[in-house]
Simulated assay, not measured.
Amino acid sequence: MAHKFKELLIWKRSRLFCSEIYAITSKFPDSEKFGLTNQLRRASVSIPSNIAEGSSRNSNKDFARFSQISIGSTYEIETQLLISPDLNFILDKELQSCLSESDEIIKMISKFKLI
């Protein structure tokens, strides 16, 4: 069942999303280096990483488990992004763009893991 993760659209798109999160968090205050910045970055790296790791597994059940972890990381990012404007760390335009992309990633992963 092994997938070539570098060819998976969900992996490519989540990798780009990770870059977007890094760009946005680079504008966060230095005092958040070990707070939201770190949390958002770690969660964003987790999405494509778990897709890649799951793709190396030999069963659909294992791949589904790693896909579920990726979805969980995406929801974690959504929560942290929703906190960010409360603290004046992110503009509404950036927030909406990220939330829209995270929704699409969740839909893509959910559809893929059902196959």
Rank of each mutant, 00 (worst) to 15 (best):
S49G: 15
C98M: 14
I115L: 10
K27F: 09
F112K: 04
E7T: 14
D92H: 04
I115V: 08
L9M: 00
M1H: 05
M108S: 15
S97F: 05
Q39A: 13
D86I: 14
I71W: 09
L91Y: 08
C98I: 07
T37C: 09
L91M: 06
R57T: 09
E94C: 06
R15H: 15
K27E: 14
Y22F: 14
T37L: 11
N58C: 06
E101T: 13
F89H: 11
S46R: 07
S70I: 04
I90F: 09
W11E: 04
R42C: 12
V45I: 15
L16G: 00
E78P: 00
S56I: 03
E53S: 11
I71M: 11
K27R: 14
S49T: 15
E32G: 10
K12P: 07
P48C: 03
I51P: 06
S46I: 12
Q80L: 12
V45T: 14
E7N: 15
L9V: 09
E78V: 11
Q39D: 08
L87Q: 12
Y75K: 14
R13Y: 11
P29E: 03
S70K: 03
G72W: 01
L81Y: 07
T79Y: 04
T79C: 13
K33F: 13
A43T: 04
G54S: 10
S44V: 12
I115C: 08
A23V: 01
Q68E: 10
A52L: 07
I10D: 02
I21T: 06
G35C: 09
K27N: 15
K6C: 00
S14Y: 05
F112P: 00
I105G: 07
I71P: 06
E101S: 04
I109N: 02
L40C: 12
I90M: 15
P29R: 04
L114T: 09
I90G: 06
L87G: 02
L16K: 14
I71F: 10
Q68W: 00
K61I: 10
L91D: 12
Y75P: 02
K111I: 03
E76Q: 12
N60A: 12
S14I: 06
A52P: 03
N38M: 04
L82D: 06
P29G: 07
A43C: 09
S55D: 02
K33Y: 14
T37P: 03
L9D: 08
K111S: 15
R41F: 08
S56E: 13
T37F: 04
S19V: 05
K33V: 14
N58W: 05
P48A: 03
L40S: 05
S31N: 07
S31L: 05
K33G: 09
S67L: 03
N88R: 02
L82M: 13
